[in-house]
Simulated scan of single mutants.
Amino acid sequence: MTVIVDVPDYMRERCARLGGGVLYAVKVLARQLADEPRLGERTGRLGLYAATIDGGTFDECPPLMVSYAYGPPLLDADRIEIRDVTATGPLPDDGDDQAPAPAPDPRMEQIAARQVTEAWRRITDWLEQNAPASHAALLPAAPERDITALEQELGVRVPMELRALWLLCAGSKDIPASCFLPDNGWALMPLGTVAESYHWHMENQRETGRGRSGGDAPVWKPSWIPFCSWSVTDTSVGLFIDAETGEVGHWDDTAVRTVEDKSMTTLLEEIADNLENPQLATGYRPGLIGERLVWGPPGAADEAALWRPFTS
């Protein structure tokens, strides 16, 4: 049986950023995988594997970790898809002024985690005082092991900002009070829903065939991790964070994907600012229906009749 190995365009671009010889090295590995699909070691979820490349074997190529999906339940039995290429050693110095982006700075990640923690506590303090039903809808913190298990299942490193949020709150309960983001209805996704949504998007990416050579931009990149949706059960629209850049993006049910120049920290700080200073809010404003937060004015007539804008 002939196995087709796909290296999507966005993976080719990443290879180019890592070094002039990286794409060639990955292509060599792809030819090996076509003959021996289980060459790599299985990682976490069934169907995900990781293989290493010795950088000394190829010019202008650092040592690499290559993650790939093979066969069911993620792909057809005769298909492999390269999902991630990560340098595990120093990048080659090619003399180009536009060098590849450095690895995350642990000090900067610590600062980002503190900023997320501060913004989230401002939000939860407001909810506890003014919208206790919405506060009660938040799930407790996720253990580190659950986040690590999710990383292994997705084959993607969770960025520090999202990890910091999940270490404070691992999503929302499936009740109306769970919506707290300023789009008249957004809920934090529990980790299980995150995994389900991610796999659905990746499968949709595979089935559409977009993002392959000669195609359009990808419908979903492996580095995009969903974290928020219309509700816990309705994931037709939502927000994701790009694990490579830290930027927050939006998806909807018409295959529109928009990446904004906004970080998780900025998103949470804007929510906290709007709650604490509702007179400065643009677009949807914070309000209450009973003891739950509802951004509005709501579009539904029954909710609009009950909704009261919050004034500090």
Rank of each mutant, 00 (worst) to 15 (best):
A34W: 08
G192H: 10
P100M: 02
V116G: 08
P8A: 03
A16M: 11
R206L: 04
F58W: 08
L46R: 15
P8T: 00
I175H: 06
L23W: 12
V28N: 14
G155K: 04
Y198H: 01
P297I: 05
L167G: 09
T282N: 13
V66M: 06
G20E: 15
V85L: 04
A301Y: 13
D242N: 11
A301V: 14
A255Q: 14
L33C: 08
A149K: 11
A142G: 11
Y10H: 15
D174C: 08
E81A: 09
N204L: 14
G287D: 05
T124A: 04
E81T: 06
A131T: 10
L150Y: 09
G71M: 00
A30H: 04
A50W: 01
V256N: 15
L138G: 05
A170Y: 02
D125M: 08
E244A: 07
D59N: 08
D261T: 11
E36T: 14
R206A: 11
L268I: 04
R163G: 05
A304Y: 15
R157K: 13
A113W: 01
V219R: 02
R42N: 12
N204Q: 14
L275T: 05
E60I: 01
N130T: 10
E118M: 07
W230I: 06
P218K: 04
M189G: 05
R210M: 02
L167P: 04
L275G: 07
G71W: 02
S312L: 12
E36N: 15
V256M: 13
P63F: 00
D59W: 03
P37C: 08
L154G: 00
G283E: 05
G287E: 06
G214M: 02
R38N: 09
G192Y: 07
A137V: 13
A103I: 02
I175D: 10
A137P: 09
P309C: 09
G211A: 04
P73N: 01
W186D: 14
Y70R: 03
D174H: 12
L74R: 08
P106Y: 03
G283I: 01
P132F: 10
Y24W: 14
R42Q: 15
